[in-house]
Design a protein around this nucleic acid. Structure first.
Length: 575
RNA sequence: GCGCCCGUAGCUCAGCUGGAUAGAGCACGAGACUUCUAAUCUUGAGGCCACAGGUUCGACUCCUGUCGGGCGCACCA
């Protein structure tokens, strides 16, 4: 059990004893009781708000209650002092042995330090990327891919069972366009001079091999045939090829989904009909006519009766059609059924979307709330745009000509780990710049470098110690002093950072924490510049060196664990 | 016109899902170092948390309104 978890239990036990003694009523809600490091270190090592949270429901005042709680906490062995401060905070000062113990715990747990059972028994389905299968991955998809994948790892680390899912939109008009584009390339492969790819089709040359494969397989059978004879076939083949390509691109980032769900198969299996029937039976789908959209003129608008989902009952501002007037499912209609399906195989759902889809969040949340009777937690994480820069200048992209920056190009240029880390250095819903020069810069301004450098230093000092003939057996941690233990205090927070990040679905917190931890380590290291006795490696003092290496390796372990959540490998040395 | 996201130091951003005197980096001021424990270090200044109300022991955080920026607004995905 980690230090913070142990103290949460300590507080619980003290509260129990107060209940038993009749000083507190039974059954008080303790969910808001926290144990945290105080923002100001002079307040002590740990702080709890228990008295303030419980005073009111207990019908007493915070200071009086704090007295009793503090008395109980003060009796614990590893607590040096328990003081009441401010409006009723209880500040604890811990014995140094507590931090040495935690340091040992980090070493013992190693790769598992920070793992939590907070999510045990809860299966979370996280759907991310889900780019249309009409071309290779470009940088527009990159951030959502990384955020989704890191969030999935984070949830696993926090104890959840995770399903990583990709929704393949292979049923709409866009894949028809893909099929027609493939047909052009097919004719080209058979020797026809097709010239410019016609406006409205996909011009990218990634379809050339698809056309060649089709030519190889079918000869000239479909060259002059009417579209009806080949469209479905070509569409299917092209989509399959695109999925292969997308999987390859994702693999470059170390991303592997557990499940690719096809919209076409979903529809073929009648899932939308089933969802519609369910909702109609509860009068949540009805046939109605939408009002003319306000604030903008729609040329060919005419009132049409459509099957509408009552999303307004769940906070949306308009009911939403689930079928088009031609009888086909709308994207929303199919997506609603898709989420219904996901909810049947998971306890909680997460979607990672581009911010340009923000307008459709409410309706899908409404749908999930309706279909699961409000029982399934469902978060939509909106991921903001990334502006690509090269030395401060925006990188020009033209989607029309197919001249976009592909994910594969970027990964090749700066590397998977740099891409992944950088994508997590901002809150997902904040815009960010990605400057090819800055992300690989070797300076402390670059968090990717700074964190990796800390780890490399730790590996390096181990190598140097070995070269100096220092061999560590049993390590005496009492040789670590307050300055050393200050870093341990930060290290000890890793487990609660993981838990909080998982609960709030914010993987960027891990990146920021690692930056803080690396900074603390570098600061400790830098003490050795002016004070040689503070160096990690002391050639004539093996016991102290070993104790400090033990500390360094614990920090290194946490960096490794944190980077693993982010899907980034720790380096042994720089360059 | 409506909805969503955002507004924190000159700049780029954190702020542990309501806690104590709001933090970091860059840039700026002052000092140190000339170094392989290298790819700097120490320190200072810098704030009406857009604005105005409300909720409560306590608000950057939650609620309402205003201002400002971005995105999206019939059966497109």
């Amino acid at each position: 059990m980690t230090l913070y978890a142990r103290f949460a239990a300590h507080i619980d036990a003290v509260l129990d004893s107060l209940v038993a003694a009749g000083d507190l009523p039974e059954g008080l809600e303790r969910r808001n009781v926290t144990v945290e490091p105080p923002r100001d270190p002079s307040h002590g090592d740990l702080s709890t708000n228990a008295a303030m949270v419980l005073a009111k429901p207990a019908g007493t005042n915070p200071r009086a209650l704090a007295e009793k709680i503090a008395a109980g906490l003060g009796a614990i062995d590893e607590v040096v002092s328990a003081e009441i401060a401010g409006p009723g905070f209880i500040n604890l000062r811990l014995a140094e042995s507590a931090w040495r113990g935690e340091l040992q715990a980090i070493a013992d747990a190693a790769g598992d330090y920070g793992r939590s059972d907070q999510g045990r028994g809860i299966t979370v389905n996280i759907e991310y990327v889900s780019a249309n299968p009409t071309g290779p991955m470009h940088m527009g998809h990159c951030r959502g891919a990384v955020v989704g994948d890191a969030l999935a790892s984070l949830l696993e680390y926090a104890g959840n069972t995770v399903i990583r899912e990709y929704y393949v939109n292979d049923a709409g008009g866009q894949v028809d366009v893909l099929g027609r584009s493939a047909h052009v390339r097919y004719r080209e492969a058979l020797g026809e001079a097709v010239g410019e790819i016609p406006e409205g089709l996909y011009p990218g040359d990634y379809l050339v091999p698809v056309g060649q494969a089709l030519a190889q397989e079918f000869g000239d059978t479909y060259v002059a045939a009417p579209e009806g004879e080949w469209l479905a076939l070509f569409r299917t083949r092209a989509v399959a090829a695109m999925i292969v390509m997308i999987k390859d691109d994702l693999a470059l980032l170390g991303i592997h989904h557990d499940l690719f769900s096809s919209e076409a198969e979903l529809q073929a299996a009648g899932k939308p009909e089933a969802a519609e029937a369910e909702l109609r039976s509860r009068d949540l789908v009805y046939d109605g006519v939408l009002e003319r959209p306000k604030g903008q003129t729609v040329e060919d608008w005419e009132p049409v009766e459509l099957p509408l989902f009552r999303s307004t009952q769940f906070g949306d501002d308009q009911d939403r059609p689930i079928r088009k007037s031609d009888g086909h499912w709308t994207y929303f209609g199919a997506d609603l059924a898709y989420h219904y399906q996901k909810a049947q195989n998971a306890d909680e759902l997460i979607d990672i979307w581009g911010a340009d889809h923000a307008g459709t969040v409410k309706r899908i949340q409404a749908a999930v709330a309706a279909l699961t009777h409000g029982k399934t937690r469902f978060d939509v994480k909106l991921v903001q745009m990334v502006r690509l820069l090269r030395d401060g200048e925006p990188v020009k992209m033209s989607k029309r000509s197919g001249n976009f920056v592909t994910l594969a190009d970027v990964v090749e240029e700066v590397g998977k780990d740099v891409v992944r880390f950088t994508m997590l250095t901002r809150k997902a819903d904040a815009q960010m710049d990605f400057d090819f020069a800055k992300v690989v810069e070797a300076s402390k301004d670059n968090p990717v470098f700074y964190v990796q450098y800390a780890h490399a230093r730790i590996r390096s000092v181990n190598r140097k110690a070995a070269e100096a003939g220092i061999v560590c057996g049993a390590v005496d941690l009492s040789l670590l002093d307050a300055e050393d233990l200050a870093v341990v205090k930060l290290a000890a927070q890793f487990p609660r950072i993981v838990e909080a990040a998982a609960l709030s679905r914010e993987p960027h917190r891990v990146a920021f924490y690692l930056g803080d931890l690396a900074a603390a380590f570098h600061a400790l290291w830098n003490l050795g510049n002016d004070r040689p006795e503070r160096r990690f490696l002391l050639a004539n003092d093996a016991p102290t060196t070993c104790a400090r290496l033990f500390l360094a390796n614990a920090i290194g372990q946490i960096i490794v664990n944190g980077l693993a959540i982010m899907g980034v490998a720790a380096v042994e040395e720089m360059q």
